[in-house]
Design a protein around this nucleic acid. Structure first.
Length: 550
RNA sequence: GCGGGUAUGAUCUAGUGGUUAUGAUAUUAGCUUCCCAAGCUAGUCACACGGGUUCGAAUCCCGUUACCCGCACCA
């Protein structure tokens, strides 16, 4: 017997083609799910609704980058360090350690684990239960040695590694946002909770770049009076966006704006407002890149409050990391109101001295010397391939120059709303799943918002009559040609056909009956009220468009 | 990863160490002039996988996988 709402939803989801476990014919594997026909369509609709909010309303741009991501990228971003360690916990000291940090040098990790050679560095207790802290999926690009790579654990890095190009594309104006919708991969130790923790999942992320001195948002004034549902780990509260910022509940306008945008998106997509809140991360649960983070949490009758969206202030963490690691100029310019003339001391390399002395490294040394500000340095050193070299005085001149400066360089800060699409989809199902009794029979309705419903309307001939079928089929074809998804059905009784549509969340059903032959009207039946209205066939198209447009 | 439980058509489920393995829903074909899962007739589809015990296993045992519940984990 189905136990609770989750079981019931997963039953319907499988039977009707929303979502179900992958590879079942080979025994299945935890953490992977297939979206069936209706699930895929629902997902597309939700993603397109999301695009409406971020691409149109917030004027972000969308890009698409590979899911296979070079080792260097994730090394720089900190994910390699944070993802791949075998860890032990000391219950006495309440601390976690990386196994490789605390075992005797030279001991293989496997051996240390097997023979209980792991001691707590603080209290000397023997530690057990070594466990890997989440892993990324690793792979190799090319044959032979190839290059190391991972399946990306987030889409964000693809955006950061594009920053300098996108900054040009947006003609060096801040703030601007870049979004990406795509798959991410995390090799969870033990995925549980059904579709809420998958190993391959879809996310929609926006990286919005701000001048750290100006974390305001151009549209802030338009939404500042709106109410937010916030939870600071102690009490839930309803406050206006403006007050949340003024009282420093949320650190800045930009972050608050995206908290609100997220709320607006989720409620439009069909999340139950009573099962929704924002929770602020405590300092000790922040990700390695975040300075402040608000989660949109949705309430599940089975799983409790579940994080579905994280809105993080990543500060300059990622861009700094990539600037340092790749040496690519990913700075933004803050223009001065008036261009300044500045007296600068520049280091001018003498290549005729550098060349003979440093050989092939001379070129790289020149590059670094060109960047130096001689006013602030005493000894001239450069770092080439990890080696620190001192450059003797006779290899350069220090020259005073007047330089015109139009602005100053800085590393932008990033506000990142990051959505777990699969989680949002699950909650759209759970929050809209309604059971009613009809003649003592259990009757289920999926009250999906028409904007996201996979099928917009059923099209039926009332009875099996050639004349009605002809009209119904034409109407069905016309609707689909106009971009409105339909489901044509002439089997079984009319009630049964309505029921089938109700179960998969189809908001409307159009029925052609005998009267239609004379008055060219059809019946539009509404899912949630079962009310019916007569509409002219020629008016059906605009009528539907009006109801379902995003 | 540890402990406990579960596994029968698309879905839910009955089942005893012994012939062609229940029933319902769904679905297919037909009949039915049909606006809220009506009825009738006929049909399709199942014992998770791999070993073992046994004359004989869907049933008992072991392993694997998946799912569920706790613990840990969720950067």
């Amino acid at each position: 017997m189905p136990q609770d709402i989750y079981d019931k939803i997963m039953m319907v989801a499988k039977r009707r083609g929303f979502i179900y476990p992958s590879f079942e014919i080979y025994g299945g594997i935890a953490g992977f799910y297939d979206y069936g026909p209706l699930g895929s369509q629902l997902k597309n609709n939700v993603e397109n609704l999301w695009r409406r909010f971020y691409l149109l309303q917030d004027n972000c741009v969308e890009i698409s980058t590979p899911t296979i991501t070079l080792y260097e990228v994730l090394k720089a971003s900190g994910h390699v360090e944070e993802f791949t360690d075998l860890t032990v916990d000391c219950s006495r000291c309440k601390r976690s350690y990386k196994v490789e940090d605390i075992i005797e040098k030279g001991t293989p990790i496997e051996e240390a684990v097997k023979e209980n050679k792991i001691l707590c560095p603080t209290c000397k207790t023997t530690l057990q239960d070594a466990h890997p802290v989440n892993l990324m999926f690793s792979t190799t690009i090319g044959i032979g040695e190839g290059r190391k790579a991972f399946l990306r654990p987030e889409t964000a890095q693809g955006i950061f590694t594009n920053f300098h190009l996108l900054y040009q594309y947006r003609r060096k104006n801040l703030p601007f946002g870049v979004v990406q919708i795509g798959r991410g991969y995390r090799n969870e130790i033990s995925p549980r909770q059904g579709t809420l923790r998958q190993r391959e999942f879809s996310m929609a992320e926006a990286e919005v770049f701000f001048d750290p001195q100006d974390k305001t948002h151009p549209l802030f004034d338009t939404i500042k009076e709106k109410q937010l549902f916030l939870f600071d780990n102690e009490k839930e509260m309803k406050v206006s966006v403006a007050d949340a910022v003024k009282n420093k509940i949320i650190n800045n306008q930009a972050l608050a704006y995206y908290v609100y945008l997220t709320q607006e998106f989720l409620l439009t997509a069909g999340v139950d407002p009573k099962k929704f809140r924002f929770r602020k991360h405590a300092a000790n649960e922040l990700a390695h890149y975040a300075t402040e983070c608000w989660d949109a949490e949705l309430y599940s009758e089975r799983f409790g409050w579940v994080e579905c969206v994280g809105i993080a202030d990543r500060s300059a963490y990622d861009l700094n990391a990539h600037i340092e690691s790749s040496s690519v100029d990913m700075y933004a310019i803050r223009p001065f109101e008036q261009p300044k003339e500045v007296l600068m001391k520049k280091v001018v390399p003498k290549m005729n001295m550098l060349g003979p002395r440093f050989g092939g490294k001379a070129g790289k040394i020149k590059e670094q010397l060109d960047q130096m500000d001689a006013a602030t340095i005493k000894k001239v050193t450069v770092t080439i391939d990890g080696e620190i070299l001192e450059v003797p005085k006779d290899c350069y001149d220090i020259v005073e120059v007047r330089e015109k400066q139009t602005g100053e360089k800085f590393v932008p800060h990033v506000i990142e709303p990051s959505y777990g699409i699969d989680r949002v989809l699950y909650f759209i199902l759970e929050h809209n799943y309604v059971e009613e009794k009809k003649k003592d029979e259990e009757y289920t309705i999926l009250k999906l918002n028409p904007k996201v419903a996979p099928i917009k309307t059923g099209v039926f001939p009332l009875i099996n009559d050639e004349n009605l079928i002809r009209i119904a089929k034409k109407l069905d074809t016309d609707l689909r040609a106009a971009g409105i998804s339909t489901f044509y059905d002439e089997s079984g009784t009319i009630g049964r056909r309505y029921a089938r549509m109700d179960e998969v969340g189809t908001p409307f059903c159009i029925t052609v009956d005998h009267d239609s032959l004379n008055d060219t009207q059809v019946t539009v039946r509404h899912r949630d009220t079962t009310k019916q209205e007569r509409i002219k066939i020629q008016d059906i198209l605009p009528y539907m468009r009006d109801k379902i447009s995003l």
